[in-house]
Simulated scan of single mutants.
Amino acid sequence: MNWKTRNRSFYYALAPEPDDPELNPATTALLVIDVQNTYLERPDRASLASEAERVHYDGWTPFHERMHGTVIPNIADVLALFRAKGIECLFARIACRTQDGRDRSLSQKKPGFNNLLLPKDEHASQIVPALAPQGDEITVIKTTDSALTGTNLRLILANLGIRTVICVGIFTDQCVSSTVRSLADESFDVVVLEDCCAAATDNLHARELEIINMIYCNVMALDDLKSLMKL
């Protein structure tokens, strides 16, 4: 099964195979979404006080294994390939401009997983070192899930002459998906690299790829992109 028939939802069960996306290096950009220190650093498991905390910790272990074993190495690979070809590489990260987070969107003030206080200059809010922007590569900061809605990214992409955006990062079912939908609504062509993304669980990751594929983006693997772009 190739990328044109993989990750299909019920809606597209009978649809013809999509055309190859237009991947002209001059009008294509890579967007790395929210691969930040706060999501990759973990406490010592032995320091956790309760069994419930330890069970929850263990539940996150597959995510961390996927990030360190697959996602971060693959994003580093595509960054190196794009940089070598002079293709635009951009970054988005969650960060607030105030120390107390009063400028955050409502979703980042609600209790639970999305209750994020990440002042823009602190270590926790930075892109992980293995994927850090280089030179004059552009980073936008946001207090929204979508990298487009809460920033001037749409204008930046237009000024750069970009028509196709390749999205990678985390979380597939949250900020990646929100960004993809916003880009599609603004009539950008979007590609999501499935092995350059992760959600909290593999099931959430797979289900979200199925939901966004074909209507909002083309979902494919990094090797598929390399073949199409002859990288």
Rank of each mutant, 00 (worst) to 15 (best):
D145S: 15
R102N: 10
S146K: 03
E51M: 13
T172A: 09
V168P: 00
I170Y: 03
T61R: 15
T144S: 10
K142Q: 02
G161S: 01
D58I: 04
L157W: 03
E65T: 08
A147P: 01
K85I: 02
Q99Y: 04
L153S: 01
G161A: 07
T149V: 13
W60V: 10
G69Y: 12
R54E: 09
E53P: 12
Q99H: 13
D121P: 01
I75Y: 08
E65M: 07
R93Q: 11
V180H: 10
A92D: 02
H56F: 15
S107E: 14
A132C: 05
A52W: 08
I87N: 02
G69V: 01
V55L: 14
P129E: 12
V140E: 10
E51D: 14
A132T: 05
L116A: 02
L157R: 02
F91V: 01
I166E: 06
G150F: 03
R93M: 02
D58G: 01
V180T: 06
V180R: 06
H123A: 14
G59H: 11
T149R: 15
V168N: 04
H123G: 08
I127C: 02
F171H: 06
L90P: 03
G169K: 00
H123I: 11
D136M: 09
R66F: 02
S177R: 14
Q99N: 14
